[in-house]
Write a protein that binds this DNA or RNA. Structure first.
Lengths: 239, 239
DNA sequence: GTGGTCAAGTGGCTGAACCACTTTGCGGCG
DNA sequence: CGCCGCAAAGTGGTTCAGCCACTTGACCAC
């Protein structure tokens, strides 16, 4: 075994660029939505070619850390380019059931309240969110933004500042659940159908039906999230 | 629904290359270990530049589908370039405890046998593996290759072809556990220290100590893998 | 205002070129 | 004959210069 003094595995250039970019995001206190320097500038400042910078950016792109807009720049999607430390992963996983339970409680009640208090504008907002989600799905995207907007408009329609405040507390975890759920094959369209049923009940002013529809929806998402996903079971929520 | 206009997700060239590569692997019946065509040939046959081919290959590399050897070609690590379906992910997760339990049983026994039967060359091989791992860590890498070599050399030293055969059956899953574990901050060095303790016991010809050290090591890895990692607990294995 | 045009900024992609490393195979030497 | 060494070919790593495509914002004409 002469491996002992084999040539020190030299890391590829793009890997070093990756490291530097992570550091830059931390030192520069860049947050989600902020713009990264142009590729040409990065290449010059790092002393590498644009091709190497692009390789690194492609990696960040497939890992979901940045969004690249042709001709418009590269933008941070999250606050950090680092993978999560295990500790936090474990902690979050431990709290997951609590979060999902809280979400079910809150959103079910919010849906019922929305059915009683919604204005015409509320209905329009929800409908617009669903249309956006449909567009996203048609474009091959998960439809996360439309999904988020829909739940936000339902919450707004409920006219309960305290419950809304509670929702904000678990907003981040819910976003992750949503993204993970919508990544499953066939999920976006089923989710859209569930949303439509919730909207119908709210528009009809039927608190009980709205609450039931919302409960079913949230429970479906929770199942995916807890990796106890059962296609058969999830399938019954299809249109 | 006015979804006819707007979003339009334009696909990047490297994404199309990715697709073609997946297809090629399927149609060409390529398996793990097989060599992919050279970048230049791929570029020419696909009618794109080498840079675009390389972007796709970098993606496959960070996703663990291929291994790129400078000057030696690009090789398949798995039989397919497709992401695992959710179902199989869940299935694998369900079988994880079994695999880890089997690993603990086998490797603990192998360590004890190695302590009894090891030759001087075996010790040298283990030591070389540990030095390699130390070098890798010093170079900022996880040290997975040295880790793998160490366990392989312990297995070889045990002189039990049947147990070795069993290890091969679960080799793939173990590799995943190892990689996931070594990606955790501080893990590589702790793992190295544990290995050193195993080696010391084997070199001293102490089967009981070797088995105990190996058991502790495997259990630590298992904890990370099962996401029930407890920093406090794992910490006691530090040097 | 409304809409169009244009220029600047920025990402997408290419092709040629050179470097670094691995593999192959041939020729000479023992 | 066999093996060693070394050159050549094969292949990935990286760069550079350049052009194209898209977005954005400013300015102009109506």
């Amino acid at each position: 075994m002469s491996d002992a003094l084999r040539p020190m595995s030299r890391s590829r250039l793009y890997e070093q660029v990756l490291e530097r970019l992570r550091d830059h995001v931390i030192e520069g206190k860049l947050r989600a939505g902020d713009k990264l320097p142009p590729e040409r500038e990065l290449a010059q400042r790092l002393g590498v070619s644009r091709a190497s910078v692009k390789q690194a950016i492609v990696v960040l792109e497939v890992q979901g850390f940045v969004e690249v807009r042709h001709g418009g720049g590269t933008y941070l999607v999250r606050d950090s380019l680092d993978l999560e430390p295990v500790g936090r992963l474990v902690e979050r996983r431990r709290r997951l059931p609590d979060v999902l339970e809280a979400r079910e409680t809150l959103e079910t009640r919010l849906a019922a309240l929305a059915a009683e208090r919604r204005s015409e504008d509320d209905i329009k907002a929800m409908d617009a969110a669903l249309r956006l989600m449909a567009e996203e799905i048609a474009a091959g995207e998960p439809g996360a933004e439309g999904d988020r907007l829909f739940h936000a408009s339902v919450t707004a329609a409920a006219r309960s500042s305290l419950l809304e405040e509670f929702m904000h507390v678990i907003a981040e975890q819910i976003t992750e659940s949503r993204n993970e759920s919508l990544r499953q094959p066939g999920r976006p369209n089923r989710s859209l159908a569930q949303h439509q049923r919730i909207l119908d009940a709210i528009a009809a002013g039927d608190p009980k039906a709205a609450a039931a529809a919302m409960r079913k929806h949230v429970q479906t998402v929770a199942k995916v999230r807890l990796l106890s996903w059962d296609p058969e079971d999830a399938g019954i929520t299809d249109d």
